[in-house]
Design a protein around this nucleic acid. Structure first.
Lengths: 202, 202
DNA sequence: TACCGCATCGGCCGATCGGCCGATGGAGCG
DNA sequence: CGCTCCATCGGCCGATCGGCCGATGCGGTA
């Protein structure tokens, strides 16, 4: 394993074990209690996210430090891993330097996240979906139409929207149909997508 | 300057200038337009946060990549710097490795944040808006399910998805139903919303 | 006053979705 | 060789959506 070589070459790092699947990861980690665990997401059996939860999750009594490594740069993975208590998230194309620093950081109780991911996390942070370049609304939506669109984009059914806004089913349908025509959407998913891109909802 | 030595020792990094105060930083950076600027927060004249805003802020036409370095680990500094467009935030006790990686990351358009700071940012992360929604059971989606989700999030109907992916209507429905169960969505709009938030589609 | 945009409703009907049952074949693993 | 997971299909049926017709009332404005 390349990782083992890189890490063992450091004075302050020693690889005490490596395992091949999720279940062994959990049992071995609980037995050896290493300072830091390095986990791949894609593993036979338990996946790395679940192993993270079992070793470092919010409900664990004596959490270990876990750094998650993966080739798959999906926000969903990142969110889950970090929510499950990971002290770091690395993409596999990160160099040896980052790997080493991530392990050291985790040991100190800090967390190192791959720069590619960090830059996306920061977007959610500093002002959310910041600059919104709006698709042409062509015709402006009325206030009431906006209300209905916002509700629809949250995944509510027409009946639920009616209940929330004190409207009849017919009225909700009328407004949504109107919006559909104005923005050129073919169905409510496209309405929702438009609402997201244009910043009507976040 | 220690920084100059460290950076100049790298094959892929060249220090083209260094300045002693905020005003010179802005003028020199605009003149030379380096790939990456390294800024201290505490500077005579304009402080580093303000310089960051002027070089990388949201209103700047041709933003430069800025990495902020400081001894003072204050959340206020971090937030302001990142909001002002910084592509990285380092504490001065970070080692040379992190400094180098931060510069490379910024050049790529990514962002590296000191592990000590990252760990605090992540607290805001999983304790914040994430709690509002029921935590997805984190069952990973299969590759095919991902395909179908992406198509659905674009507003395609099941039949259209089938045509695009060469699947029967039944299969599309099966995959979507599976996804719906895994992520806890009540309908396809919620599936689309999940796809947007989690970065599966953009 | 007559007109127009907006919001509010109703009915009808076909298309689509969503939930539920089932089945087959292939790949990987012990 | 079974076992499990995945991908692929089918049928059935009620709920929901989407399109199209209509109506009423209210507030501005020419």
């Amino acid at each position: 394993m390349g990782f083992r070589m890189i890490l063992d070459a450091q004075d302050d790092i020693e690889v005490v074990a490596d395992v091949a699947d999720g279940v062994s990861a959990v049992t071995k980690a609980r037995e050896l209690r290493p300072d830091v665990c390095l986990l791949d997401i894609r593993m036979p059996g338990l996946d790395g996210l679940e192993v993270t939860r079992q070793l470092a999750g919010p409900d664990v009594a004596d959490p270990l430090k876990v750094v998650v490594v993966t080739t798959f740069d999906l926000d969903e993975y990142v969110h889950t891993a970090l929510r499950n208590g990971a002290h770091g998230f690395l993409l596999k194309d990160a160099g040896p330097a980052l790997l080493i620093e991530a392990v050291r950081a985790a040991d100190r109780g800090d967390a190192l996240v791959s720069p590619q991911i960090t830059v996306r996390l920061l977007k959610h942070f500093d002002g959310g979906p910041a600059r919104s370049q709006v698709a042409p609304p062509s015709e402006p939506l009325t206030a009431r139409e906006m209300d209905v669109v916002k509700a629809a984009a949250r995944g509510l059914t027409n009946t639920e929207i009616g209940a929330e806004l004190f409207l009849s089913l017919s009225t909700v349908k009328t407004h949504l149909a109107s919006v559909q025509g104005k923005i050129g959407a073919r169905n409510r998913v496209e309405i929702a997508a438009w609402a997201w891109r244009s910043g009507v909802v976040s």
